[in-house]
């Protein structure tokens, strides 16, 4: 799972959960896969992302030196930050780990790079 996908996932499907966001990410094993930097795509993706969850992902992978805690203005003009965002969001692949619902503590495992967001029948 890439950290861009982490930014989109919620646990609001669980019965009684209102927001279910951001999930708590734990990484046991990760891999860095280099991919081509596409500035327009990162720029187009930015409005779809939640900055606080970007920052918490950066905390988990210890890249807080690269990513500011508060969303700066005019990111698109800051080539360096865009590159760093690209690295954080698309090049770090979580192979093994878990996502935890912030409200109920329900754990969603990530195995072989694929998060399993399925709930049991008594949870929906």
């Amino acid at each position: 799972m890439k950290l861009s996908t982490y930014n989109f996932l919620t646990s609001m499907a669980i019965k009684g959960v209102k927001v279910g966001y951001p999930l708590k990410l734990t990484i046991n094993k990760k891999e860095v896969v280099e991919t081509e930097f596409n500035a327009t795509f990162v720029e187009r993706l930015l409005p779809k992302l939640d900055w606080s969850a970007i920052y918490s992902a950066a905390q988990v992978v210890e890249l807080t030196d690269d990513i500011p805690a508060v969303q700066p203005e005019n990111i698109a003009e800051n080539e360096q930050l865009m590159q760093k965002l690209h690295h954080l969001l698309f090049e770090i692949d979580v192979l093994d780990g878990q996502l935890e619902c912030p409200e109920t503590g329900r754990v969603f495992p990530i195995t072989d790079g694929i998060p399993n967001m399925l709930l049991n029948e008594d949870e929906v």
Binding site: M1, S4, N7, T10, M12, I114, P115, N116, M117, L119
Partner: peptide, 23 residues
């Protein structure tokens, strides 16, 4: 097209999963 791969997720379509901002 390996660069174009974002992710696949195991999920049930009948339940909400994605953040409202995702478009």
């Amino acid at each position: 097209c390996a660069d174009r791969y974002m992710d696949v997720v195991v999920a049930d379509f009948s339940n909400p999963l994605w953040h409202r901002r995702l478009c």
